[in-house]
Amino acid sequence: MESLHFPQFDPQISQVSIALFTKVSNAGALKLRIIAAATAEGQAGDVEREAVNFAFIDARLITSKLHLETAVCQALLAASQDALRTRTVHSEVLYNLNPTHNITEAIRRYGVSDANTDVIVVRIDSPELTPEAVLKKMEAVVVGTLSPFSDLENITDWASIKKYHKLNGELAITEAAKDPQKEHAVIDKIVTSSVAMKSVMS
């Protein structure tokens, strides 16, 4: 798990923990649990919501750590300005990753689903919540193997990313098509920049 600190934001959203889980077996159940938690009532509801208070992201659609960090940073910025487009700062990360303004589509594409075996879990909180405590909470809900972020390079599904971002046929991609390494670098750069400028996308 990696911890990032964003000192420019208010303490309650300044600490970000990111973990990659592979061989995840309960992705489908996790999705149902998140949906159920959203409408659960009373004190039990609050407890359940806290248990799944993370952003669960399909790791196949993430091109690099910078890509994810950029989405988190823009979500924090929106939260700090009371300009969230979605209900929570965690769902805002999913929204930022998707190139369109459709929230349902963003959650369907970038959130967890039955077919997921590789999941990135993100928790945005204050530095008072220690990394050990966050990891414990993550491991309590995800059944899988905690893996180093460098494993992402074997997980990324470049074809789907090209489709979602409408990159097929773009000059930058056709130019680099012969060399997969170069193509991946170009896609990563475009996708990361798209996430960063989503708020002013035409």
Partner: peptide, 26 residues
Amino acid sequence: VAGEARALLKCLRSGVNVPGIRMVDA
């Protein structure tokens, strides 16, 4: 700010070497 960011992205998609965008607070 929006115009500059859009021009950069258009360049990136067209394969022109320009710096990548990291954050926008218009």
